[in-house]
């Protein structure tokens, strides 16, 4: 059985930001926020992107949506390259794309009532009559579990979880094919987090949505994702289906990330846990060779000079890719 044709293909995407400074405000450095990332998303599936701060996961999401202009690479969506379309073409393509942010308070226009916020996507794309738009706004509220009375209220009158529901309603208004969720639950309390995750899972089933789910919490990402990309300093270091990644992580960073998660199980004390030493280097000045070698407990001389590519692991083909010279044969440093 061959995999269904992807709806999104990201090919060698790079997003570099110049750093200016000094007396003449010249370009003094470059932040390699995303540095050659390739993956695809199939219809109706969730691809999770996980990593710590500075790994480039949020930048990747924004570059895919063209909220940034990528430095290099392609983002193929409906056969068009999102990275290189302009004006009306971009607007038309974006109808099929949605985004949900960490803090909906920042992303919702606070001077408008919720009714307007939900009708606006239709207005921008000139769809429907005023009566139809109001009906659709009501349906959207119903879909995300908010009462109709929300239409005339303002974002600040809602709690964090409710605001995230409004953000989700807006993101799915135009029935997109793909929604990018950028840390959608990390600002929420535990009891609200599960409500929002359930809502996202339910909407995916009902509407056949595909998600790119970006988060720092691997347990959350694993729960909602079909396939997961682990990022470190602008690069994908491992890509596999979610269960394989959990049960058979091959990259030392993935292994460390899994081991660091505090699990609600008091039989494992933190003192017995293997802990990754050192800090995440700055993406302004990433280490040469494998970017993880400065913290890797298995690093060999080769890792300091030669950048490992993200390649299929053994016979797994595209199903499990890893960027480590010594994947499957890790030997502790002498």
């Amino acid at each position: 059985m061959s995999a269904p044709k992807p709806i999104l293909e990201v090919k060698d995407l790079k997003m570099h930001f110049p750093v200016h400074g000094g007396l003449l405000f010249r370009r003094i450095a470059t932040v390699h926020a995303v540095d050659g990332v390739s993956f695809d998303v199939r219809p109706g599936e969730t691809v999770g992107i996980v990593g710590e701060s500075g790994c480039g996961k949020s930048t990747l999401g924004k570059a895919i949506l063209r909220l940034y202009d990528p430095t290099h690479g392609q983002v193929l969506f409906h056969g068009r390259d999102l990275a290189h379309v302009h004006g009306n073409d971009l607007r038309v393509l974006r109808r099929d794309l949605g985004i949900i942010f960490q803090d909906p308070y920042e992303s919702l226009n606070q001077t408008h009532p919720v009714g307007f916020i939900l009708e606006e996507p239709f207005l921008i794309h000139r769809i429907g009559s005023p009566e139809q738009r109001r009906t659709w706004a009501r349906e959207l509220l119903h879909k995300v579990g908010l009462p109709e009375s929300a239409l005339d209220r303002y974002p600040h009158e809602f709690s964090g979880g409710q605001r995230q529901r409004i953000g989700i309603a807006r993101a799915i208004a135009l029935k997109p094919k793909l929604v990018i969720c950028d840390e959608p639950v990390s600002a929420l309390d535990v009891s609200i987090q599960s409500q929002i995750l359930n809502l996202l899972l339910t909407l995916q089933k009902e509407m056949g949505l595909a998600y790119i789910f970006i988060a720092h919490d691997l347990a959350v990402v694993k729960h909602v994702s079909d396939r997961i990309a682990v990022m470190y300093l602008g690069k994908i270091v491992e890509f596999a289906d979610a269960d394989t990644l959990h049960h058979r992580p091959l990259h030392p960073y993935t292994q460390a990330l899994l081991a660091s998660i505090p699990e609600p199980d008091p039989s494992r004390s933190v003192e017995d846990k293997p802990v990754l030493e050192g800090e995440i280097p700055s993406p302004r000045n990433p280490p040469p060779g494998c970017r993880f070698h400065t913290r890797c407990p298995y690093a060999q001389p080769r890792c300091k000079t030669e950048i490992p590519s993200l390649i299929p692991w053994a016979d797994a083909g595209e199903a499990h890719r890893v960027a480590c010279h010594y994947a499957g044969a890790l030997q502790p440093k002498a």
Binding site: T46, S194, N198, A219, V224, D243
Partner: peptide
Amino acid sequence: SIPRLDSVRKTLLK
């Protein structure tokens, strides 16, 4: 309500 690594993926949480 906490998603755990060994919970069954894509099932609704309590």
